[in-house]
């Protein structure tokens, strides 16, 4: 049974390993379609919108509402063009696979979804990741953004908070030395490079603790230092789950349609399967991808 896609499955697609040609062609096709649509729709804007203008206005207005509601009036307005473009791009690149390859005679590699290639979703998610954190820095300042990684923290306005905070800090410094000794002892069997790297990391962690003690006395807040690595991993986890969610669903839908169609010898069901998985599920997940980009930004900006 032949279920392998025609284009080679190249994870990451490093230079020298070749490119997934279908991904490249179809991404450019979608980009050209979006640019052309942008020009055609906005060329003759009318007070009483026609059907085409109405459709696009509804779309933009919907995302305008969502952005301003969750990001605030000013930042939300800035986000609308990016968010609408992200939605249209993920949507079109996900559902393009329902088009049969009518250009095969011209050497077109087939309308495989670019989003069933991990590279596409990964690059989109990297863009979103940087936009989320840069807007968080611009909204809260570098200090506020960094402080977000030490939450939930302890306020020191009340005397109980001061006592708890002081005890907590003392325990923390003791614990970090304890762990540092344990780590270095525990990994004594490792090669020199790994030990140096671990040592440097632990040194940074300790220096960070000492600086934070001084800093938090000024700020009257005690940072929750053990949460910092977990918060960082949590942010990275978001950046991992964001692209894999879209990729897994689109690639999974593609595989399901082909496998089931092969098993039932292409009788009856395949068009409906294709519409359900490659149109409906793809629409849901393109929307989810876009909404998560807004939600991640909202959480970071409102810290």
């Amino acid at each position: 049974m032949d279920i392998l896609p025609d284009a080679p499955v190249v994870i990451w697609g490093l230079p020298g390993e070749g490119f997934n040609v279908a991904t490249l062609y179809n991404s450019w096709l979608v980009m050209v379609m979006l640019v052309v649509a942008g020009v055609v729709v906005t060329r003759r804007l009318q007070r009483v919108p026609g059907r085409l203008q109405m459709t696009f206005e509804l779309l933009v207005e919907f995302f305008d509402d969502v952005c301003t509601a969750s990001l605030g009036e000013e930042l939300g307005k800035k986000f609308v063009p990016f968010i609408v473009t992200l939605f249209l791009f993920t949507l079109l690149t996900s559902i393009i696979t329902v088009v049969p390859n009518f250009l095969a005679w011209a050497g077109w590699p087939g309308f495989d979804s670019p989003t069933q290639d991990l590279n596409t979703t990964l690059s989109l998610a990297i863009i979103v990741f940087f936009i989320v954190h840069i807007s968080a820095i611009r909204a809260n300042g570098l200090r506020g953004w960094l402080w977000g990684f030490y939450e939930p923290d302890f306020p020191m306005q009340h005397w109980a908070g001061k006592v708890v905070g002081a005890l907590f800090l003392a325990a923390l410094i003791w614990l970090s030395y304890f762990f540092a000794a344990g780590y270095v002892g525990g990994f004594a069997g490792m090669d020199a490079g790994t030990r140096v790297a671990l040592g440097a990391l632990l040194g940074l962690f300790l220096a960070n603790n000492v600086l934070l003690v001084i800093y938090s006395i000024q700020l009257k807040r005690v940072p929750n230092v053990p949460m910092a690595p977990l918060n960082v991993v949590g942010e990275l986890g978001k950046a991992i789950s964001h692209p894999f969610r879209l990729f897994g669903n689109i690639f999974g839908g593609f595989v399901i349609v082909i496998v089931i169609s092969e098993l039932i010898l292409y009788i009856g069901l395949p068009p409906f399967l294709d519409l359900f998985f490659n149109l409906f599920i793809a629409l849901v997940h393109a929307f989810v991808f876009t909404m998560l980009a807004i939600a991640y930004t909202a959480v970071q900006v409102h810290d």
Binding site: G252, I281, H285
Partner: peptide
Amino acid sequence: QALATSPAVFALL
């Protein structure tokens, strides 16, 4: 339901 099916899609993949 379309959203809740996606873990099964991952498993199938």
